[in-house]
Design a protein around this nucleic acid. Structure first.
Lengths: 327, 327
DNA sequence: CTGTTAGCGCATTCAG
DNA sequence: CTGAATGCGCTAACAG
């Protein structure tokens, strides 16, 4: 910058003003400075600027696993939205390890990020609190924490679950099973709760052995479906925690020669790309993953610009999608 | 930091030494400082440190689309490897827009990243050169640029293509078609080249109408397969640019009642998760995406630590995977 | 083993 | 409209 100032015959301050388009500078000198900047390929140091202004123009994004299509889509939403606002995004893929998640949060503090988006943290409540109080601007995805003063973006998982189970009920199913995924997660609980509420209002008895928790993967779904169908061969409809679980269940049905949907109807959740591509294509519930990312970013930038948002929440609607696996 | 120094009754320098575990400090004072650091919840400012040291401990990762499972896996490799080396990663998802890619490269320069990993850039050669010469440490993925002094990590796409087509030939196929994907990309060219070379060595005549370029998506594959099979119903084997294209081709075959693999054998490429989950599961070639990310990071860190690497390349082997779509 | 003196490259006062 | 002085929080070289 000093070089530019000298070459242009002005002070450092004037160069700074021109670059930041701030204060009044005569068109004449502005042009002169810009020319020199161009000629010398000068790029201001964001580091030095950050040190002076206490703002970095960066945010942190913590996800359990960036290779999981769900989080990859969320990340894309965050990244795109951040780009439009001239923010840069630190990607932190915690590999589901709480310990690593904590290290990320600490590291992001050293990097002096302006804010933080934490996606589906496995962190126990206690650790979350400690980690987040050191950051002023935080948005949580798929997790509530109003009392921490953090914003939250959630999908309406419960409503989605209700739509799916109601669909089954309308089709006359009585023995509707649930592969419920992880019991600890927000979405796991919400989807289970939706399932229960429809059974209740439909006057269908709650049968505990129709519900099984499982890992949120295709293998987890396949195993759980195997066990479930062995124990209760009278099941005619199967609501799966997510599409991967449903794909696994589909595999199990195929290997047991249970025709889908003729003999057993199957529904997933999320509507990731694979849902439409398997055979038969999955009935499911579309979760606006990209939008979740965009909204999380929006909430965060609002906080950064100190527009108040104490524990404000954004709940995004989901969309029921009927396909051949449960017509 | 000044506060810590005062509280501990030492100079700034000593605090700095303790924090960076550098120089000799007596156990006594070290403990005293650490205690104060703990008590005051002090965290050094990476920004200030970067300004003083000219190193940021950050790298940039530019990908066309983070929601594409291929790049998501690469990103995970980069992120995991970077984490192990205490580096932070800026995620830049360019949405396939060359213009945005350029802005990212510029922005990463302002952020003073220590290095840059660029994945499958759509940038014309000219722009790439300009953008990259401003960064000293660069690694390219799926693209060569030895003369730029950038490192490169590539998968052995040509060998993979050869394995697949050889497999078809061994099974007695003569009319082997290729849905070749984008003609401009490195991997598109390499896979086409592998296809041609096997035909040649096998004495099978090259038939231009058996090759069709298409978008690297399921829809792209479905359309292209439709056209291809209409024109040449005598095709018995179909090698697809990647798994998504193969899934599309599969869909087309199903809708035309062409049994796979009895009537027509199909193979994909990459071995993304979906390949094993469709029906029938896809024969394909596994590209070590995660490893590509890890290796790219390794090459980059080598450059950063000024171990010479002028245009060095790492070519990763691929693995042939036989499944039911082409047994 | 420890402290002192200088910046790192910029933005923010305040004066001209 | 422009410039000079000062500090952001830390580290690199030297001195003690």
């Amino acid at each position: 910058m000093a070089d530019v100032a000298r070459e242009a015959g002005v002070s450092l301050m004037t160069v700074s003003r021109v670059i930041n388009e701030k204060g009044d500078v005569s068109d004449d000198t502005r042009q002169r400075v810009l020319t020199v900047v161009e000629r010398m390929d000068y790029r201001p140091s964001g580091i030095a600027r950050s040190l002076a202004t206490h703002r970095t123009g960066t945010i942190g994004l913590v996800v359990p696993d960036i290779s999981n299509p769900f989080f990859a889509d969320v990340a894309r939403g965050v990244a795109d939205a951040a780009y439009l606002e001239n923010y840069s995004v630190f990607l932190c893929s915690s590999d589901e390890e709480p310990e690593r998640e904590l290290e990320f949060v600490a590291s992001l503090e050293e990097k002096r990020v302006d804010g933080l988006i934490v996606c589906s943290s496995r962190l126990p409540r206690q650790d979350l609190t400690v980690a987040l109080t050191r950051h002023t601007n935080v948005v949580l995805i798929n997790r509530r924490a109003n009392d921490l003063g953090a914003g939250a973006v959630l999908a309406d998982d419960e409503a989605g679950a209700r739509m799916i189970v109601e669909h089954f009920v309308r089709r006359g199913h009585k023995n509707i099973a649930l592969l419920a995924g992880p019991s600890a997660s927000y979405s796991g609980k919400a989807r289970l709760s939706g399932y229960r509420s429809v059974l209740e209002t439909s006057g269908i008895a709650w049968q505990p052995d129709l519900v099984r928790h499982c890992a949120p993967t295709a293998d987890g779904g396949a195993e759980a479906a195997e066990a479930l169908l062995t124990e209760r061969p009278d099941i005619t409809a199967l609501f799966c925690y997510n599409d991967l679980v449903a794909v696994g269940a589909l595999r199990t049905c195929t290997s047991r020669s249970l025709e889908v949907p003729a003999r057993i109807a199957i529904a997933g959740f999320d509507d990731i790309a694979i849902a439409a591509l398997v055979n038969p294509p999955l009935t499911t519930c579309r979760v606006p993953r990209y939008d979740i990312g965009v909204q999380a970013n929006r909430l965060l930038l609002n906080q950064i610009n100190s527009e108040p948002c104490n524990g404000c929440e954004t709940i995004l609607p989901v969309e029921f999608v009927v396909r051949a696996s449960a017509p």
